[in-house]
Design a protein around this nucleic acid. Structure first.
Length: 112
DNA sequence: AATTTGACGAAGC
DNA sequence: GGCTTCGCCAAAT
C-alpha cells in the first residue's frame, strides 16, 4: 500500500456530511495533483472494505461519476439524505457543497 | 517485468 | 454547450 493510497483513504474518510470533494481535489491533497485516476481506482476497489463515504466524491464538474444507473441513483439518494441537493442529472452545486480542508486552505475564497 | 486499465482532468476544436 | 485527445500513475493482469 503506497502512502498516497493511504492518504487518499484518510482524506475521503474526513469529508464531512453535507459536503463533497472532487477526485482531483483529493488527489492533490494526498500529494499527487495529477493522481485523480488513482483515486478512482482506490474507490473502485476499496470503498466497501474501508466503509468510505464514496458518495461524497464527485468529478470536477460536480456530477456523479458512476456509470451504472442503479449506483448513480444510490449516490444521489445518499447525498440528498445528507442535505446535498442533486439535480436530475445527478449534479451538485460545487460552489456550495465543495469541502475545503481548513488546514490547507488559508484563503478559501481565493481557491475558486 | 511489461502492458493494460480506469467512478478523472485539462485543453483544444 | 458537447466531443476528442492526451496526460496521468497506482494497481491489476
Amino acid at each position: 500500500m503506497q502512502p498516497f493510497t493511504k492518504r487518499v483513504i484518510e482524506i475521503i474518510k474526513a469529508i464531512p456530511e453535507g459536503n463533497v470533494m472532487t477526485y482531483g481535489q483529493i488527489a492533490a491533497q494526498a500529494g499527487s495533483p495529477r493522481g485523480a485516476r488513482q483515486v478512482v481506482r482506490i474507490l473502485h476497489s476499496l470503498s466497501a472494505v474501508h466503509s468510505l463515504p464514496w458518495h461524497r466524491v464527485v468529478n470536477a464538474k460536480g456530477e456523479i461519476a458512476l456509470q451504472e444507473e442503479e449506483a448513480r441513483f444510490m449516490q444521489s439518494f445518499y447525498l440528498n439524505n445528507e442535505g446535498v441537493e442533486t439535480d436530475e442529472a445527478g449534479r451538485v452545486n460545487l460552489e456550495r457543497y465543495r469541502y475545503i480542508d481548513t488546514e490547507q486552505a488559508s484563503d478559501p475564497d481565493a481557491l475558486q
